[in-house]
Design a protein around this nucleic acid. Structure first.
Length: 316
DNA sequence: ACGCGTCAAGACGGA
DNA sequence: TCCGTCTTGACGCGT
């Protein structure tokens, strides 16, 4: 049994005594490896689906191997792992074959002991009044849960979503989210909510997380674009015994202020660690997973690790 | 053969 | 009003 992969940080004001695990998301840069191989809806049939899924699961193992080589603790599995799985044109009976393929690869996947989490697309919305949209969102979430169940992930295998739109009334929309989740208790098993950069700040998301006892995924980049007042210990407390998942990205030097950069600036990482250092009591024993949301994926992770080593922030 | 626009889906802010 | 942002690979049409 190997232990939790974490990086050994030093050179902070005092020794930073939390165990920080890192990870990158979904694919390698330029997608030599990807868990998001897909197909056009009009080409959706059993044969095509199985061949695409086969590519995704084979690449998943290679991506976990790569993550492990880079000493990562967490990996985000792409939402297109089983393309169109929640679509009406998807024949549910295909899942039997998928299930048995997963079973064959499971020992290889589990041996890395890397935490696998997922982040459905922007179309999963629980704040809406539109019944059909809610139904489709629940179907999509059900698919994500199915995947993590079948990958035999423990309670740390979360499914992260944003809170959706406000439709001009944020309080009403937050109530809708609470109502929709309350009416579907199975969501409490794996669902987690993340603050976004335009609509729902950490303090907004906290209302739902505290009401329903859901983990709050703190995205530092989003928080800086849409700040709010909150007690960071309350964010930690939403995780109960689970390992908090936080997100970090740097601003892109092109595009608008919302877009994610190719890499993670060392300064942004240090700033985030200092934020954690300042806001979590020294004596609190904690593991924390930080997913790096950078366009250049594993290259960004490697570059960050190198620059941290070069400047002696990281013990090799 | 390759480059580019489109593809299941929503909502928002900014130009 | 339209486009880019969240995601970023496949594919089919045009050259």
């Amino acid at each position: 049994m190997k232990g939790y992969n974490y990086i050994k940080l030093c050179k902070f004001k005092m020794k930073f005594n939390k165990e920080i695990g890192l990870g990158f998301i979904c694919s390698t840069y330029k997608s030599e490896l990807s868990t998001n191989h897909s197909l056009k809806l009009k080409n959706l049939n059993k044969k095509n689906l199985l061949s695409v899924f086969q590519k995704n699961i084979v690449d998943l193992i290679k991506l976990l191997q790569l993550s492990n080589n880079l000493n990562c603790s967490i990996f985000r599995l792409g939402s297109q792992f089983i393309p169109f799985a929640s679509h009406p044109k998807f024949n549910r009976s295909w899942l039997k074959e998928i299930k048995s393929i997963i079973k064959d690869y499971l020992p290889e996947i589990k041996k890395f002991e890397i935490r696998i989490t997922m982040h459905p697309g922007q179309y999963v919305i629980l704040s809406s009044e539109n019944k059909n949209l809610i139904k489709r969102s629940l179907d999509e979430l059900k698919y994500h849960f199915w995947v993590l169940d079948n990958l035999e992930q423990d309670e740390n295998g979360i499914v992260v979503i944003h809170c959706g739109g406000t439709y001009g009334d944020k309080i009403k929309s937050l109530k809708n989210i609470i109502k929709n989740i309350s009416q579907n208790k199975w969501l409490l098993e794996r669902l987690a909510l993340e603050n976004d950069e335009k609509i729902y700040s950490v303090s907004d998301v906290m209302i739902v997380c505290q009401e329903l006892l859901l983990p709050l995924v703190f995205d530092y980049f989003h928080h800086k674009l849409l700040t709010s007042d909150f007690n960071f210990l309350e964010v930690i407390n939403t995780w109960k015994g689970r390992i908090p998942e936080f997100h970090l990205s740097s601003r892109s030097n092109k595009g608008n202020k919302f877009s994610h950069g190719d890499y993670i600036l060392k300064s942004d990482f240090i700033e985030f660690i200092n934020f954690l250092y300042t806001n979590i009591p020294f004596e609190k024993n904690l593991k924390i997973d930080i997913l790096l949301e950078a366009k250049k994926k594993e290259l960004a992770l490697k570059k960050l690790l190198k620059s941290l080593k070069d400047e002696k922030y990281l013990l090799v």
